[in-house]
């Protein structure tokens, strides 16, 4: 009888662990990570990436479609290049698309916002390994203030 009770209680113990694990998996963690499936790689060159980091999200109209996979400096002028992985569900981005470094909210983290461009004859779709043509760098607060003061003086 003693062993039976032990067995049942250890069973309860294991069941409680499984419940906790399922809860963490379904309710807490993002198991629907966009970059879990197949992805393709695109590059974007900026003057300044601001606070962008590896694993920062890439969004189209606020919807996450990929993540930053690598950030490095290129060439003799040390130009920052951001490499992103985008889900193959969204593989029809025209080469006229614009990518900007944006901030979510006033203090939020930075992400890459992609604005799909117009589609016309002779406009190609971006493919694995291609680069965005149009990029907007991060807004740096000091520069913004400087511009503001400058424009005030002119008035």
């Amino acid at each position: 009888m003693e062993t039976r009770k032990t067995e049942i209680l250890v069973g309860v113990f294991v069941a409680a662990t499984i419940v906790a694990l399922v809860f963490l998996a379904l309710r807490v963690a993002s198991n629907t990570d966009i970059t879990r499936g197949s992805t393709y790689t695109l590059n974007a060159t900026f003057d300044n990436i601001g606070g962008l980091k590896v694993r920062s999200p890439v969004k189209i109209g606020g919807v996450t479609v990929g993540r930053v996979s690598r950030i490095y400096l290129e060439g003799e002028y040390y130009v920052p290049v951001v490499e992103v992985q985008i889900s193959t569900d969204y593989d029809a981005l025209p080469e006229t698309s614009t990518v900007s470094v944006l901030t979510s909210g006033l203090l939020g983290e930075q992400y890459l916002g992609v604005e799909p461009g117009f589609i016309d004859d002779g406009i190609m779709m971006l493919e694995d390994g291609d680069s965005f043509m149009n990029t907007n760098s991060a807004m740096v607060l000091e520069e913004l203030i400087g511009q503001f003061l400058f424009s005030q003086r002119e008035n």
């Binding site: 113990f13 294991v14 409680a16 419940v19 906790a20 694990l21 809860f23 309710r27 807490v28």
Partner: peptide
């Protein structure tokens, strides 16, 4: 074996 199980429970209950 049991400590990681306990830690998972702790975390879930804490959340």
């Amino acid at each position: 074996v049991s400590m990681p199980m306990l830690a998972l429970m702790f975390t879930a209950v804490g959340i």
